[in-house]
Design a protein around this nucleic acid. Sequence first.
DNA 1: TATGTCTATATGTTCATACATATTCAACTA
DNA 2: TAGTTGAATATGTATGAACATATAGACATA
Lengths: 244, 244
Amino acid sequence: MKVFNINHGSAIPLHLQVEDLLRELIKNPEYQEGKLLPNEVALAKQLGISRNTVRQATNKLVFERLLIRKKGVGTTVSKDNITTKLDKWSSFTHEMGEKGVTFRNYEIGVSLIDADDEIRRLFNITRKSKVVKLERLRGLDSGPVVLFISYFHPRVGLTGEEDFTQPLYDMLERTYHTVAAVSKEGISAILADKELSEKLEIEVGDPVLFRKRVVCDPGGRPIEYNLGYYRADRFTYTIEIERG
Amino acid sequence: MKVFNINHGSAIPLHLQVEDLLRELIKNPEYQEGKLLPNEVALAKQLGISRNTVRQATNKLVFERLLIRKKGVGTTVSKDNITTKLDKWSSFTHEMGEKGVTFRNYEIGVSLIDADDEIRRLFNITRKSKVVKLERLRGLDSGPVVLFISYFHPRVGLTGEEDFTQPLYDMLERTYHTVAAVSKEGISAILADKELSEKLEIEVGDPVLFRKRVVCDPGGRPIEYNLGYYRADRFTYTIEIERG
DNA sequence: TATGTCTATATGTTCATACATATTCAACTA
DNA sequence: TAGTTGAATATGTATGAACATATAGACATA
């Protein structure tokens, strides 16, 4: 059993040390399953610090909704499922990285295809144009969570040779000097068909959160058409909105 | 010039009162333009409370990135908080009205119920509190589109006698002088159960877009918990996002 | 069987206090 | 003039203490 300790003389403030310690501690399965954390007074005593300092540390985690405190009961780990914020519009890789969740690619496929009607209209391109289609299945260790299908405007000049393991929009910016600026999204619910059910490892007819996204450059011209199919049991879209 | 005051005897904790006060204060143009807020010690003295309590209030705003504290300098309002006006945030009636679609109520039910655990936790109320539950089935001439279920914090003082045919948030503002300011949403996909299928006039197992929404007052305290069940075949959630 | 009451427990709130440290700016110095 | 020093100021960190209040469980009561 690993023992956590606090260094009073360190340059690192105590509450930050405690915060880190707690972040490690709550990875323990028993806490993930809902067991109460050591209470504040005991924790303070055990670490040789004051209760206020413990609270200063837990405050941050409570704010992040990682911990839930209940008066008269105790403190537990929040068991919210994976969420993402729409307000910080960013690539999925980033969102996941921020939360300390390990996200990885299951499958990546790149191909050069003929644009269908919808895509031609969106990108305003001619009948004969080819577009790059990027298919990514992403998820956690426990299994796939989302299937992304992206189509890119020929203007970005993708060849199909790119490294798509890095965060997507970073790559676009760095490599193509294209700054993604505006995104339009539509969210809907659908049922999994055979192909989706196989890829997402669910049953045919299971609910899937379907998200369309059009990413435009600063001039408002579409550069990417992105379809996202999320396993509804593992993913919730979270939005925080402030009124002007 | 409006004077802000703190009520020591109130049931509302001091730090929440200070938080509200600051949220109002920083709307002042001079602070929006970068002027330093009154320093913590002065603020505490002026309000007749301790510096710790002032910090407890500002901590929250700092965490929300509304305020920026700089050691040795002072505290200012964050400038880039303009970021994501996911504006368009408005009641469903408005959204539809803007689109020129005639929306009407199919069914409205109001009842006074005992709060369950989730609602008690959200509203931070005691076991015995009753809350108003508002159920609205809305749609077009062609049939229902969405089932709304709302729970209101006792603080808004609903009695069940209200006229719920008018746009909801307008009514709240006009009638209760409560300005809904922040909304948190989670969107997910579910399958229709028997009750849902009957109300929305679909089949059991059809996909339904499920949206949870927490509406808070300017102090960040929840005033409404709103569940929306949308027929996926008739409704798509649309979001437009601009990057800061 | 309910219902109510008490109690131990854990978090919630608030205060007074002390010292650490980053920033600014003015005064001093090479 | 350029650079250093030092005081004033503001936030950052940390402690100890006290009382408030919600919760769960044990116990007693109708």
